[in-house]
Amino acid sequence: MLFGIAAIVPALFFVIGMVRDRRRLGNAVWLGLTLVLLVLWLVFRATAIGGWSAVVVGYAFVALLLGLGFVLPIALIANGVLMLRREGFGLANLLSLLAGLAIVGVVLAFGFATAHTAPAVDAVIGSLLIVAAYVAFLFVSLLLYSIVYGSIGRRTGFDAVVVLGAGLNGDRVPPLLAARLDRGLHLYRREVGAGRTPLLVVSGGQGADEQVSEAAAMREYLVRRGVPDEAVVLEDQATTTEQNLAYSARLLAERDWTGRAVAVTNNFHVFRAAVLARRLRLRMQIIGAPTAWYFLPSAFLREFAALLTHNPVVHTVTCGALVALHLVLTLT
């Protein structure tokens, strides 16, 4: 009963946060806390009732441990190898492989701790497990909330469609960027069909290994698919997501545009783009385009790492406090 009542508090903060602004990072944390407390309530409730309820909870717990300790790291390592084969060597493409190896390391550390019960060993291994649990909680919370954010919100009634750039292959639009452009084109055509004349903004500068700016390649892609050349507005200076949003908003302001805008990116990138739009004080919704399945694990891990950098002091202090409490309890 205690956990069920306690879950009401973060649930209320979650609802309030959603009403105030769906782009708040705190919404993900409140959602995660609510789910953790609800799971604890279900576990203790089933244990108190006994019988089949306790048996089901026991099997579910064993399945969870096996999934997290064995199936998940194997899947991440396999995905990392696939990423290297299809996308080439690079830190971003190594993330799922490194995450899988890190989970294996945590499992081995836990096994070592259970075989060696010296206080110093318990203190060190326990600290590592606490940090791992904290990071895992944040990752799952942000992942779930990213899915929630991407599934709700307005889908029509836009006066401007901004497509955020991504890397080119020389001067060609790769599949990742093509998915964004196709989604932006779909939104544009739907607004035109409804009798509106929306602006279609393509945003992206030129990288060192690109023959043209991303915006130029994106405009050519859209024009070849029937969009009038005069309907496409170029923003060809941005090199980051934050610049994509800021420069596109500035371009719209220069044209005295005051309507509703939507920015299109890939589904894994939606929530971080929304957080950045909030930081820039932009009233701009973010909509995601589909992404190849094998690309998602590394992409979500990269987004998670980037979101952590938004509040590094908070995460460092929280982890430090949890570890300090553990050390005090273990070594005294």
Rank of each mutant, 00 (worst) to 15 (best):
S151I: 04
N311F: 03
A273H: 10
M18T: 12
I5A: 14
V148N: 05
A6E: 02
V15C: 13
A305C: 11
G4W: 04
T117M: 08
P198Q: 07
G111V: 08
R224G: 10
G69V: 04
L129F: 04
A75I: 05
I49K: 13
A179D: 07
L199W: 01
L97E: 06
N169Y: 10
A231S: 13
V9W: 04
L91N: 07
F139V: 13
P175T: 07
I286M: 15
R272P: 00
I16L: 15
G26K: 05
G153L: 15
W52A: 10
A75Q: 07
L142W: 07
V71T: 06
Y294N: 13
D209T: 13
V173P: 06
F61V: 09
F304E: 04
A132I: 09
L329H: 14
L84E: 10
W52T: 05
V106M: 11
T47P: 02
A11P: 09
Q243V: 07
A123T: 10
M284N: 08
F158R: 15
I286A: 13
I130W: 13
L245F: 03
L40G: 11
L101F: 11
L327E: 09
A99M: 12
P290L: 06
A263H: 08
P290N: 11
F271T: 11
P175G: 06
